[in-house]
Every structure is written in structure tokens, then in C-alpha cells.
């Protein structure tokens, strides 16, 4: 498979379960070193980078993070600064200020002293994004950032992601929601059987042919609000009701 993600763009990766989206992310993150092929990050070969060097290029927001111990939100975000620390040092004043700034930017500074365990799903996702932001990397990888979130929180998170891309981040996210990826991304990559099915602008990708070949389900795709949104409805629903 081959694709390029550019700065200032949100690239959404769509694909059925088990197609290899997470595996792809793990390869990019250097967690699965034994891949064949080439991952090029701003002109650097990813396989030649050390863990610490890679963490200066890519920040990762996991789908779900369950810390065993009861850290405060501030401490969790502070962990993102580790990529700039020497082996034996702890984050100092400037790192703490940076963590607070990131929380402020995402509008959750009031959570700073809260226990991570006492935050809601949406807040957690924003906290993890804040942690990725303090890593100061050009690239953000988000693994299903809106899974487990309610509709309101999903939109909150997606809007923030879009803002970050506008600021110049290269954003890659996996998702299971074609409609949202239509609204909130600049480019969509679809994956099937471990390889790229199609890649292009949301308008090119979100149609009933791609949905059928991607998910194996017949869907009608209708355009709404001057094609600013598209809506996928399974054919079975429409025909049953008729």
C-alpha cells in the first residue's frame, strides 16, 4: 500500500474491523519494527529512527487509555513532554506551563487538578489529545478518537482535530464513521484486506460503490446541505419501510 499525508490535512482511514488500520498505525509508530516497505517522515526513514527520535515526530492518541494508577489530568498531560527530557530528568516549570497551555487550548483547563479516573469519556479523549500536543510533533496519529463518545463529544473532538490540522499539523485518524469523516477530513483513505482500496477527497470516496466494496453492505448515499454533508442509509432499511 502507498499513500501520502500532508501537513495541514486531516487524513481519515476507513475500513472494516480487522483490516489492518491499527497495524498500519503500529508500523508508523515503530511498535511493529518488522515491516517491509518504507515509511518516510519529513524526509527521514522511520525504521532508522530511535524510539525517542520518533516520539519527536509523531504523537499518538490511543483509542482508550486506562492508567492503573490515579494520576491527575495535569500529570497525564505532562507525560507528553518526556520526549524532550534527558533520561534522568523530570519535567520542569516550562513543561508544566506547556501542559496548562495545551489544556487551555482545548478548553479543559478546569480539569487540570482532577483525577483522570474522574473524567468523562469525552474529557479523557481531549486530555489525551492535549498530551499529544505537548509532544510538539508535526504529526498526530489518532486511533478512533470518537469511539465510545456520545454525539456531542464526538463533534467537539472532531472540531478540535480540524482546528489542529488548520494550524499545520498532519493528522491521521482511523474511524468507523464515513459520514463524520466526510464532514471533518480533507482526505479519506479506505482500506480492504490490508491494502489501499481508494484514496482521495471525501467527495470522491463517499459514494455507494465504495461503501459497498468497503463494508459489503448496500447503501444509499444522499447529499445534504449543498453537499456539505452526506448521509449513508442501508438499502434494507429503505426497502423494508416501503
Amino acid at each position: 500500500m502507498s499513500f501520502t499525508a500532508r501537513a495541514g490535512e486531516v487524513l481519515s482511514i476507513l475500513g472494516p474491523n480487522g483490516v489492518g488500520k491499527s497495524t498500519l498505525f503500529k508500523c508508523i509508530l515503530g511498535l511493529l519494527p518488522d515491516y517491509t516497505g518504507n515509511i518516510d517522515i519529513n524526509g527521514l526513514d522511520a525504521s532508522g529512527l530511535k524510539v525517542s527520535e520518533l516520539a519527536k515526530q509523531i504523537a499518538y492518541v490511543p483509542q482508550r487509555s486506562e492508567p492503573v494508577f490515579n494520576f491527575s489530568v495535569h500529570e497525564i498531560v505532562l507525560m507528553g513532554t518526556t520526549n524532550k527530557l534527558k533520561l534522568f530528568s523530570s519535567p520542569g516549570k516550562s513543561a508544566r506551563a506547556k501542559a496548562e497551555q495545551a489544556l487551555e487550548k482545548l478548553g479543559i483547563s478546569e480539569l487540570s487538578n482532577r483525577c483522570f479516573h474522574h473524567t468523562s469519556g469525552g474529557e479523557r479523549q481531549l486530555v489525551m489529545i492535549a498530551r499529544a500536543l505537548v509532544q510538539d510533533t508535526p504529526i498526530l496519529l489518532l486511533d478512533e478518537p470518537t469511539a465510545n463518545l456520545d454525539r456531542g463529544n464526538q463533534i467537539l473532538v472532531l472540531e478540535q482535530i480540524k482546528v489542529l490540522a488548520k494550524e499545520g499539523y498532519t493528522v491521521l485518524q482511523t474511524t468507523h464513521d464515513p459520514e463524520q469523516s466526510y464532514m471533518f477530513s480533507d482526505k479519506i483513505l479506505t482500506m480492504k484486506d490490508g491494502t489501499v482500496l481508494s484514496c482521495g477527497s471525501p467527495a470522491e470516496i463517499l459514494n455507494k460503490e465504495t461503501m459497498k466494496s468497503l463494508y459489503g453492505v448496500d447503501m444509499e448515499v444522499s447529499s445534504l446541505f449543498d453537499d456539505r454533508a452526506r448521509f449513508c442509509v442501508p438499502v434494507s432499511v429503505i426497502s423494508d419501510e416501503n
Binding site: 503500529k26 520518533l54 516520539a55 494520576f71 507525560m79 518526556t82 527530557l85 530528568s89 509532544q135
Partner: peptide, 17 residues
């Protein structure tokens, strides 16, 4: 401090350097 980061799990720790 590194120990703190490790408690988040190996994969997350690696992505933080």
C-alpha cells in the same frame, strides 16, 4: 519520571519516547 510513563503501558510509553 520514566517509571511514571511506563505505568501507561509499553506501547503508549514508546510513543512518548
Amino acid at each position: 519520571w520514566r517509571l511514571n510513563v511506563i505505568t501507561m503501558g509499553d506501547e503508549e510509553a514508546k510513543t512518548m519516547g
